[in-house]
Design a protein around this nucleic acid. Structure first.
Lengths: 338, 338
DNA sequence: CAGGGGAAGTGTTACGTATAACGTCTTCTG
DNA sequence: CAGAAGACGTTATACGTAACACTTCCCCTG
């Protein structure tokens, strides 16, 4: 019988089953083939069930020197996007017997506390979104295997990177709007220092530049409905050249804010102005009209990130190549009216 | 010098500083006042910094028998709500030197895998949302300290419960709409077996019953924009008594779907029908017109949940009382037109 | 000058697990 | 029938940390 009040240990199970602790470890660790008889094994399993034995993970982790746990560092969970990333990562992890611990970098002011101290868990590796920029310095210090999501492959100092093909997304948006006859653009850009958003801006500008007579203005806004509202309103009321007929937003949430600004200004979507977003959150179809946007496959993103980390941990070479993105055309874009 | 290739241990630090491992533990554990001289302590800290020493958490957890880590079990992260819960919980946890590990129960088909196996981390306690119903059976087995969020206090078998005052929310909605002259209601209910939603339905019905001549119909829908759309459309096209002038939704997301259905049916919000939600997600202000809704303070929810768990862990009595909720009146509700 | 007591440490142990290395006993083979 | 080869275990150990129980030195007090 186990000592009262404390969790049963493998030694308690051993005593109950009349075997040594080592035998318990072998049986429960599924390494007993040819080492323990089937009847004894069953006796051990029965005793473990009886006592409600659960292995002490701290002890196991200490013994093995690895934890089969990885940390996923993401920005604050203000949309469901990183929920999807987590889901994908956790699914792949589970298939390999790994667990995923989430560390959303604290929202608002102040630098991130040390994510490792906060997670408290011993870790085998880290997947980090570059958007959780403030948490990255703490991560750099540790020499844990690291996979970066949405990060400049050239600037990652050898860390493995997994990216959505965000540049292609920008090109698809540009081509779609150009094909509809739009020539005057406003880019509502996320006011977040991130490689991703830089790439979007560059690719958008580059693509538009291939057509003569196009204009492109940029307005920056924090990623929030309120922020997008004020930024859009300011950009469109300031009399500055031709009024744009297309509004390219870095994010669905920004687009939602833009919708409100346009409504206030008396501009109709898409008749007076076309609007596009990025992400394809639930929000995109909640808007009226529904938003034309770049669909980012969050779960695949998470899956690929986790797969890459597992590859690193097992000494394999991670899969190469960006994750494709897809333009979803809905009601917020229409031919330009001259 | 530490053995090459492996992480430095406290023993390596001790050797580098010319002291015993015990002294390192004392200094770095901040328990050295009166036991180690300031100069020696500084030497130890310097050596630790030099070697890049990080304590092995698995070893520490094993030694201490506690991990200062708790698990937060939530439904799939399909809205930002539980992101807020996490933020609140993590904030309080950090103040007490605890970490929070998130376990979103897997979306879609199939029962949850064992959350403990997946988290892989040794845990001191659990906070679980009752909405992650499928994960609860696995939790029940362990005798870890448990705090339930949004759960029937009478049905929780002695587990501590922390609840939003969701019944009061339903009453506030009812009173608001009744005051606007509405008498014919449709309740768009979340098709999720959860105590919370039962309470809402009961309180709504009870409050409406206090006024003569009111009618209340109910339509159930899965919590998604699509689901709400079809359910609402079906409920309003089936010719069944008076057409409701008020649509009470269990959730902002349901309201978003309802908006779309109403638009298809040619009904204007709020002129033809008033709509309310619950949550006050970002979505609520993205809708046109903005949604009158019950604001749930997700962060306070998380804070209170974590505070309650800490109380249990420290043998104190958790704070009592439901968390107040607040009706936020926006443009989706207006006086009933006779 | 005896000895009480604080400062400044060190030696040792245990936490619970997984596994390497080592014993038996039985059975099979040449 | 000798001895090799399984079958079925056990014993012992290490992982890295925190903390208890000691020791030593020195200063102060009566």
């Amino acid at each position: 019988m186990a000592r009262a009040g404390t969790r049963p240990t493998s030694r308690d199970v051993a005593q109950a089953a009349g075997v040594s602790q080592a035998a318990v470890s072998l049986v429960l660790g599924d390494k007993w083939r040819g080492r323990v008889s089937e009847t004894t094994a069953e006796r051990v399993r029965e005793a473990a069930r009886e006592l409600g034995y659960r292995p002490n993970l701290a002890a196991r982790n200490l013994r093995l020197g690895r934890t089969r746990t990885v940390l996923l560092v993401v920005p604050a969970l203000t949309t469901e996007f990183f929920g999807g990333v987590y889901t994908g990562a956790a699914r792949v992890a589970a298939r390999h017997g790994f667990g995923v611990v989430l560390y959303p970098s604290p929202e608002g002011v102040g630098p991130a506390r040390d994510p490792f101290a906060s997670a408290q868990a011993a870790l085998d590796g880290v997947i980090a979104s570059s958007m959780a920029a403030d948490a990255l310095s703490a991560i750099r210090g540790d020499q844990l295997p690291l996979v970066m999501l949405d990060s400049d492959p050239r600037g990652s100092h050898g860390a493995v990177t997994v990216n959505l093909d965000i540049g292609d997304g920008a090109r698809q948006v540009a081509d779609h709007l150009l094909a509809l006859g739009h020539r005057h653009f406003l880019h509502l850009a996320a006011d977040v220092p991130s490689w991703t958003f830089e790439v979007r801006a560059q690719e958008l500008a580059a693509r538009l530049a291939t057509v003569a007579g196009t204009t492109l203005r940029t307005a920056a806004a924090p990623i929030s409905i309120e922020g997008a509202l004020t930024a859009t309103e300011a950009a469109l009321t300031a009399p500055q050249g031709r009024r744009p007929t297309a509004l390219v937003c870095d994010d669905d949430k920004l687009a939602a804010g833009a919708y409100k600004a346009l409504r206030r200004l008396g501009l109709r979507v898409p008749d007076d102005i076309s609007v596009t977003g990025v992400d394809d959150l639930g929000l995109a179809t909640a808007l009226d009209p529904e938003l034309t946007t770049i669909r980012l496959d969050a779960e695949t993103f998470g899956e690929r990130g986790m797969a890459a980390l597992l590859a690193v941990l097992e000494g394999r070479t991670p899969e190469e190549g960006d994750i494709p993105v897809e333009l979803v055309v809905r009601g917020s874009t229409a031919p330009a009216t001259p």
